[in-house]
């Protein structure tokens, strides 16, 4: 009813509001999957999340899944990416293929030695800015513990995430966190500060039974 009435008033609304710069429609979701040694066991969980997201995305939306490994600022780390067709029937077929790609990846994935979360986020920003959807969401499926290989420089790189929504999923607590919980809290705070300084919105979702909250609807 609401949608019907709003559509009925569309012409009037357009005339009254004028033609301001329109917000592009659609959603863009970029999901980073941590494949470091300690985290590969959690990838089944990631699969569930990906499937839930696929079920909720509409025709015209963009979705990409990438791995976090030693050096994640690379297109090679993108496992699957797609912009769904405008036609719902085609979009459904694309979702099935996408799911198949992710399944294959999870089956064959090998643990990475290092965890370059920042590189992955930078790659996500680049991808989503290129697609320019109405709502940009970066999902980080990781414990957020960054471990960089010697020589990789990621410190003090500002993250330009203006109007981005960044969601940390399933942030597991490490053994060291149990010894000193401040490490866990510091880690979350560190990422929150980085995202919010970049103009983004930061959220943490650890309850995987509420996957509908993932896209912030």
């Amino acid at each position: 009813m609401k949608r019907f009435l709003s559509l009925a008033g569309i012409a009037l609304a357009l005339v009254l509001t004028g033609c301001d710069e329109p917000i592009p429609p659609g959603r863009g979701v970029y999901m980073l999957m941590d494949t470091s040694g300690t985290y590969t066991g959690e990838l089944k969980q990631a699969q569930r999340i990906i499937n839930a997201i696929l079920a909720r995305l509409d025709p015209g939306d963009s979705f990409a899944v990438a791995r976090i490994d030693t050096g994640s600022f690379s297109e090679k780390d993108i496992v699957a990416k797609i912009t769904f067709d405008d036609r719902p029937s085609m979009a459904n077929q694309q979702k099935r293929k996408f799911r198949q790609l992710v399944d294959d990846f999870v089956r064959k994935v090998k643990p990475a030695a290092f965890t370059d979360v920042t590189g992955g986020v930078l790659q996500a920003i680049e991808y989503l800015n290129e697609k320019n959807p109405g709502r940009k969401t970066i999902l980080i499926f990781s414990d957020l513990k960054e471990e960089l290989k010697k020589g990789y420089k990621r410190k003090n790189i500002p993250l330009q995430v203006d109007r981005f929504s960044v969601v940390a999923l399933n942030v597991t607590k490490l053994r060291s966190d149990n010894i000193d919980p401040r490490e866990y809290m510091d880690r979350l705070e560190y990422w929150q500060t980085r995202i919010e300084e970049g103009g983004g919105r930061w959220r943490v979702i650890n309850d995987m039974d509420r996957l509908e909250r993932v896209l912030g609807d």
Partner: peptide, 14 residues
Amino acid sequence: MAEMVGGGNYIGGF
């Protein structure tokens, strides 16, 4: 109708 005119195209947010 989305199958005919596309489900991802918008005019004025609709």
